[in-house]
Design a protein around this nucleic acid. Structure first.
Lengths: 255, 255
DNA sequence: ATATATATAATCAAAAACAAACAAAAGAAA
DNA sequence: TTTCTTTTGTTTGTTTTTGATTATATATAT
C-alpha cells in the first residue's frame, strides 16, 4: 500500500469511528506504531484529523453519520485480542464464515489481503472486506436488521444452503455448561445455527463475560463447537469446567 | 509503444486500480523505473494523477470524504431530478425494487419514512434505508462487487426467486430503440433481468445521455419497460421515436 | 501520591525511492 | 544525409521512509 493510500485509509477510519488508537491502526495497516505516529503527525499538520494520546480523533462533528457505529463497545480490548487470535487460524484459500458480531468485524479489519472466500451476513464485515482485492466476499440475503446492519430471516438461512465452508467464526451472548450457546435475538440465532451446520469447524469467539450466562434463544450445544477462543480474564473455574467437558479452549493473551 | 500511449495506459491503470507502484508500471510498460518517474511527474503536472512515494494514486474517487454522497457523479443534477420524480410513484405499503445504481441511491435517500418493503442488491441503498424505521429492507445475497458495493452472481439472481413486487426502479447504461436496454456489466445485467421478471411494473431511470447508446450486455426489450423516467435534456427526436413505439415517458422537469 | 504500564519523542541505521547528470538512442527538421 | 531535439537508460549521490532502540512523558491503578 502506498503512503498516500495509507493516509486516506487512516482519515477514513478516524472519521468512520470518531476515534481510533495507534495500536489499532498499526495492525490494520501492517506498519509499526512509530510509522502510524509519524503519519498522524503529518495528517494533523495537514488539518485532516486531531491527535490525542494513544490515537487520533475525527475533526468532523463527533456524531457518526450512522447510529450503528456505537462507540464504547463493551470489552473492546478483549474482543480485539480474540480477533487477533482467530485471524491466526485463517490460511490462504480458506473458505470461512464470519457472523454479524463486533469481534467478526474486528477480524475483517485485520484480515490480511490473501486469497480467501468469506461468507457473511454482516454489511459491516462485507464493507470492511470490500477493500481487500484478493478476498472474495459472499453475502447472505435476507431482511435487514437495522441496528446490527445484518441480514436475517428465512431467506438469510436459505441463502446459506448452497455453501459449505471450512471454518466458521461465530460469537454469542451466553455460554452455559449444560444449556449450551445462546443469543438474545432469535433471528440471529437461527442464522448462526445454519452457519454451524454448513461449516466443518466452528470457532466460538467469546470474551470472558459470556461464560455462565444464558440469553433468550439457544442455538447450539457445546459439543457442536470445535474450539472456543476467549481472553485471559476468563474465570479459571469456567476454564476448568470446559476442560472437563473436553472442549478445546484457546486463551488470547496480551501481545 | 508511443509515449502518449504509455501515458494513457498509466492513467488508465491508476484509475482502474486506485493506485499503482512505479516498479509495477516499469514491468508493464517495459521501460525503466526512471522513465516511469519522469512520466508520473509530467502526468502529475498535467493534473491527471497524484504522485506518492513509490507510485501514484488516482485523482478520482478520492474524496469520499465529508460529502460521502455528493461525489463527482456524471449528470448528478439530472439523476436527482429523476429520483425525485420516481419517488412520487411510491405509495405506502408498496413493495418495490431498487437496483444498484446512483439514481436508486438518490431515491433511497429522499424516500419518505412510510411503511414500505424495498428489495435491493445494493449495500449503499440498504444502508441509506436502514435509518428509516418504517421501511423494511430485503437484500439479495450474492458475491460482493467491490466497486459498486452490490451483490451479483447466480445466488443474487436465485435469491430474488421467492419475491414478487409491484414496482421495480432500474437504471441502465444504454437505451436503443431496436436493440433494447443494455448494461456494461454482465452480472449486473442478469440481476436486472431477474428483477424485471418479478415486478408487475418496471420503471427505467435514465438520464438523457443514455439514449441511443448500446452497452455490452442487453438485458431487456423496450416493451418490457412500463415507463421511462428521464430528464428534460433528452433529445426531442428520441422522445418522438419513443412515442411512436408507444413507450410511456415521463420527463422530470426542473423544480 | 507513588508505582506501573503505556505512549511518545528523539535518534540511528538500513532499505527503498528519488533526483541529477550524462551518454546513447530515437525522432524530427534542415 | 546531417543536425538538432527529445527520450531513454545508466550511474551516482541524495532524500525519504521505515523499523529498532532508548530515554522521556503521560496515563492508569493501587
Amino acid at each position: 500500500m502506498l503512503v498516500a493510500e495509507r493516509h486516506e485509509k487512516i482519515v477514513r477510519l478516524v472519521n468512520e469511528r470518531g476515534s481510533i488508537r495507534v495500536s489499532e491502526l498499526s495492525e490494520i495497516c501492517n506498519v509499526t506504531e512509530e510509522t502510524i505516529r509519524r503519519d498522524l503527525d503529518r495528517l494533523e499538520q495537514a488539518g485532516r484529523l486531531l491527535r490525542s494520546h494513544g490515537g487520533a480523533v475525527s475533526i468532523l462533528d463527533q456524531q457518526p453519520e450512522v447510529p450503528y457505529m456505537e462507540r464504547e463497545i463493551t470489552h473492546m480490548e478483549e474482543k480485539k485480542r480474540i480477533a487477533q487470535e482467530a485471524v491466526k487460524l485463517i490460511e490462504a484459500y480458506d473458505r470461512i464464515i464470519l457472523d454479524a458480531s463486533t469481534t467478526a468485524w474486528y477480524m475483517a479489519s485485520i484480515l490480511p489481503d490473501i486469497p480467501l472466500t468469506v461468507v457473511t451476513n454482516s454489511i459491516k464485515v462485507a464493507m470492511e472486506l470490500s477493500g481487500k482485492e484478493k478476498v472474495e466476499v459472499i453475502s447472505t440475503g435476507g431482511v435487514l436488521a437495522p441496528r446490527s446492519l445484518s441480514f436475517v430471516g428465512p431467506s438469510a438461512e436459505r441463502s446459506l444452503d448452497p455453501y459449505h465452508v471450512g471454518k466458521a467464526f461465530l460469537s454469542c451472548k451466553g455460554i452455559h455448561l449444560d444449556r449450551g450457546i445462546s443469543e438474545s435475538n432469535e433471528m440471529q440465532a437461527l442464522v448462526k445455527r445454519k452457519m454451524i451446520a454448513i461449516a466443518d469447524r466452528t470457532y466460538l469467539l467469546a470474551d470472558y463475560s459470556k461464560f455462565g450466562l444464558q440469553a433468550f434463544t439457544y442455538f447450539a450445544e457445546l459439543h457442536q463447537i470445535d474450539e472456543i477462543i476467549t481472553d485471559d480474564k476468563i474465570d479459571p473455574l469456567h476454564l476448568q469446567e470446559l476442560k472437563e467437558k473436553a472442549v478445546k479452549v484457546t486463551v488470547a493473551g496480551r501481545a
